[in-house]
Simulated assay, not measured.
Amino acid sequence: MNPRIAKAVINGLLIGGAVVALFPLLWMVSVSFMRPGEASALPPPLLPAHAGWQNYEELFTRAGMGRYLFNSFAISTAITVLSLACNLMAGYAFAKLRFHGRERLFHGLLGMLVIPAQVAMLPLFLMLKYMGLVNSYAAVIVPAMATAFGIFLVRQYARSIPDELMEAARIDGAGELRIFAQIVLPLLKPIMVTLAIYTFLTAWNDFMWPLIALTGQEHYTLPIGLASLAREHAQDSELMMAGSVVTVVPVLALFLAMQRYYIEGLLLGSVKG
């Protein structure tokens, strides 16, 4: 086949695939600006006849979406900050510090990666219940403060840091905390960005655990709020699409803005590990 024709065919297939993937998102945004009942027409319209913000006004004035948005942002930010602190320190310890049982403990953490998270939900819920944390932000934040995947990712990347740097700092009298803060952390910046983006997106989109741990509507996150909205407004497609836009667009914009750093960190971690 002629190279130009092959290139045109490949580009055409890629563009077609992109259109197929993006069409539901674009139609979701379009429906969110339609008037109530407009999307139920047959055939469904692609663009609103009279675009308006009435669905978004309904969400924030009556459906409580503003509270859900604040809860999601607060919980996701807290989880990201605390998870970064715990995973970075633990990953560095497994990579560079020598202590009894290090390898066995790390292998145990690796084993946790193959265990479905749903298996631990019941005992975790009972533990939080005994601690009095159910139906609070802490019920969602505390279990996510450290993850096996995050520790593994940092550990693989930290192994590439030359031991000579830390030995020289120890000879100069630097303590372990100072070595970690002034030498190790700057070298971990690529994986920090990757882990921060991954953690924030995971926390923002999490549905199952917040649904179990948060029983009061005032603590609902956006995914749970959207599900409760679906029960009350099952026939209002336009309002539901507006809620979906509010849920999806912030994290989609974050990922598109930071995707270069996210992919770089994953590739560097896989190569250096």
Rank of each mutant, 00 (worst) to 15 (best):
P186V: 00
A148Y: 10
V140I: 14
L201D: 02
P223T: 03
D163E: 07
A49L: 15
A257E: 04
L239P: 14
L254C: 00
T199A: 00
A120I: 05
L14M: 12
A242G: 14
V271A: 14
P250I: 02
E176N: 01
M145E: 12
C86E: 03
L69D: 07
Y261F: 13
I5V: 11
L84V: 00
A196P: 09
M112E: 15
V134A: 15
L26P: 15
E232G: 07
Y130F: 09
F200K: 02
I212T: 06
R159W: 15
D236C: 10
E57L: 10
D206M: 01
I179F: 00
P36H: 05
L69S: 09
A227P: 13
L84E: 09
V245W: 02
G216E: 09
R67F: 10
G108R: 13
E38Q: 14
S270K: 12
F106V: 13
Q118I: 12
R104H: 13
A253G: 06
L153F: 13
F33V: 14
Q118C: 10
V29P: 00
L84R: 04
R4I: 04
S32V: 11
G108Q: 06
G269K: 01
F255W: 03
I161N: 09
L42A: 15
A78H: 03
L222P: 04
A253M: 00
L69P: 06
E238P: 12
G225N: 11
A74L: 14
T77N: 05
V20W: 00
S244C: 14
Q118A: 12
L187S: 01
F200H: 00
I79Q: 05
G269S: 05
L84S: 10
L59F: 07
I197A: 04
A51P: 15
A41E: 15
N55T: 05
G175Q: 02
L267D: 02
P143M: 04
L254G: 04
L187D: 08
M192W: 04
G273P: 05
Y68N: 04
A169S: 05
L222G: 12
V184R: 05
A196Y: 02
F70P: 07
G269Y: 00
A146Q: 13
N205V: 03
D236M: 03
E238R: 15
M28L: 11
M166N: 00
L226E: 08
P143F: 01
E38I: 06
R102E: 03
L201G: 01
G111R: 01
L229M: 14
L266D: 04
L14P: 13
L211Q: 04
L214Q: 08
T80P: 10
A78Q: 07
L126W: 13
L109N: 11
V246S: 13
V248E: 01
V142C: 12
C86V: 05
A21E: 05
H107D: 12
S76I: 03
L177M: 12
T194N: 02
Q54D: 14
M112L: 08
P48W: 08
Q182M: 11
G52S: 14
L110A: 07
E232F: 09
L82D: 13
A168S: 02
R178K: 04
G175A: 09
P116Y: 07
G101V: 05
F180D: 15
S160D: 10
G108K: 00
G175W: 02
L105D: 04
